[in-house]
């Protein structure tokens, strides 16, 4: 079973994925049980930048957002450079950013709020949202790959 998996998906990192996922779950648990709120990153970002009315207390949201790069820096210090391959086109990055900004506000959440916090709560809204953005992401990647392969 394990050999089959490693052979079929040579680039997958299931153990690191699971370990990282558990940390993300603990982060969400801390926010929920300590501060009584959803660790939804798009919502907290909008709150910190004044782009959302109401929501979490500003210091709570700001400290959470500041913690994201700091937590990543700690992992980098302990385990070495964090691999990342960004899209090469700044136009693609810009377009992706604008669409992500509009979509996460219109749909009230992203991978953290709907995909982790809402899904685990079995919220019907979050289940629908998560299935929708994964499906839309898969279609988008397939279309982009088809277009770039043809061009």
């Amino acid at each position: 079973m394990i050999e089959w998996f490693l052979h079929t998906f040579p680039h997958a990192q299931p153990l690191r994925g699971l370990a990282g996922g558990i940390l993300i779950g603990l982060a969400g648990a801390l926010m929920l049980l300590g501060a009584g709120r959803i660790a939804g990153i798009s919502g907290l970002t909008a709150r910190v930048t004044g782009l959302a009315k109401g929501g979490a207390p500003w210091p709570l949201a700001a400290l959470f957002i500041a913690g994201l790069p700091l937590g990543a820096l700690i992992v980098a210090a302990l385990t070495g450079p964090i691999p990342a391959q960004f899209p090469t086109s700044l136009i693609v990055l810009t377009l992706a950013g604008v669409i992500t900004g509009i979509g996460t506000r219109l749909g009230s959440g992203c991978t953290s709020g709907h995909g982790v916090c809402g899904l685990s709560r079995l919220s019907p809204r979050s289940i629908v949202a998560t299935l929708t953005f994964i499906a839309a992401g898969m279609v988008t990647v397939a279309l982009v790959n088809a277009l770039t392969a043809g061009g």
């Binding site: 790069p69 992500t100 749909g107 992203c110 709907h114 982009v144």
Partner: peptide, 29 residues
């Protein structure tokens, strides 16, 4: 709103491979 917003977010996610959390964490790298 929910479905349209999630679909839009999915398109952005597929284009860039980034969602808000990793993008903000990547600012230092």
């Amino acid at each position: 709103r929910l479905i349209g917003g999630a679909a839009l977010f999915g398109v952005g996610w597929g284009l860039g491979g980034l969602c808000p959390g990793p993008a903000i964490a990547s600012l230092v790298f």
